[in-house]
């Protein structure tokens, strides 16, 4: 990756495989790749790859005929432009894509510009809004449920655009969907149906951007050492917590966290406040709130309800060193 213009070849660096179909002018016809938290292979498929390659050849013919306008090229950006990466990694070894992502996140964290919803929770899962693709067929919708169904999406629709940007592959769809501001309340998905194109406006649910981070190994993600489940509205009311709050019941305390005395949490504790904050408009999960609000490695104070008694617990987080 050392000499690659990562400004041009921008993608979620936590993909194990990722492709671009392009030409000698460095005009990108499409992306192929993308994954979800379930598997690195969820959207990798030889049939859909063949479809993409054929479309690539078609696009290339159109380009040569002057029927596709040349793209504006993004500003060049190389791994050497990331100061800590240049200092710590480039002199020693090949630059791993995953490291590029992690060092960029660390740079943003140092600069105070890190938007964890955007940079840490990359590649929102389209299943969260109810889109299940027929993967071998590319962007053909297999099943539409929840928000996508309410917007009018139907099985057999072919997704051809997101927020006005054309999409030819799942890689395109995931990339441009990921570009959306995490404050967005709607997404415009264009579908081809019966020879016509229709734009569907999907109302995004709260936390539409949330994904499981387990496969990412961010060093900017605080490791908190416990698992929890958000309380229901009824449970919050019963305990007198804010209905919009992130009060959550501890369901598991990591053995390492317990032995290392990161915290004194017990299964069954209800964590209802972090450093004096009870409500985060972005989430109703205390775990997600902590991941968003706490700097990796920093301690925080949690207010906890334990056997009817309210108390404060000091919690340490851990910061991953990643694979440096």
């Amino acid at each position: 990756m050392t000499g690659i213009d990562i400004g041009l070849f921008d993608y979620d660096r936590h993909n194990a495989l990722y492709y671009f179909i392009m030409n000698a002018d460095e005009h990108l016809y499409m992306r192929y790749g993308g994954r979800d938290a379930r598997s690195a292979d969820s959207y990798l498929d030889l049939d859909s790859l063949e479809i993409a390659l054929k479309m690539g050849l078609e696009r290339h013919e159109l380009y040569k005929q002057g029927r596709i306008e040349r793209q504006a090229r993004p500003e060049p950006f190389f791994p050497r432009d990331i100061p800590q990466l240049k200092k710590e990694i480039l002199p020693r070894r090949c630059t791993e894509c995953h490291l590029i992502a992690d060092y960029q996140a660390q740079e943003a964290e140092r600069a105070g510009t890190l938007d964890k919803r955007r940079e840490m929770y990359r590649s929102p899962d389209i299943r969260t809004i109810g889109i299940e693709l027929d993967v071998p067929k590319g962007l053909v919708v297999k099943e539409a449920t929840d928000a996508a169904k309410r917007a009018g999406m139907k099985p057999g629709d072919v997704i051809v655009g997101v927020n006005g940007t054309p999409t030819l592959t799942f890689g395109d769809l995931q990339y441009f969907y990921d570009q959306m501001s995490r404050d967005s309340e709607q997404a415009r998905i264009s579908v081809a149906r019966n020879g016509a194109t229709k734009e569907l406006v999907i109302d995004l649910p709260q936390q539409w951007w949330w994904t499981d981070l387990d496969h990412r190994f961010w060093s900017v993600e605080p490791i908190i050492g416990f698992s929890s489940r958000p309380l229901s509205a009824r449970e919050k009311k019963k305990h007198g917590f804010d209905a919009a709050g992130f009060a959550s019941e501890v369901t598991h305390v990591n053995r390492g966290a317990w032995m290392g005395r990161w915290n004194d949490l017990r299964v069954g504790d209800i964590v209802y406040s972090i450093d004096g904050v009870e409500v985060n408009a972005a989430t109703q999960s205390c775990e997600t709130h902590i991941r968003l609000a706490v700097t990796a490695g920093a301690p925080f104070a949690a207010n906890v309800l334990r056997h009817g008694a309210r108390m404060q617990v000091r919690i340490r987080t851990r910061r991953r060193s990643y694979r440096k």
Binding site: L17, N23, C97
Partner: peptide
């Protein structure tokens, strides 16, 4: 010809 570029682990 067009190009097919792969990034992989």
């Amino acid at each position: 010809k067009p190009l097919f570029l792969e990034f992989r682990c």
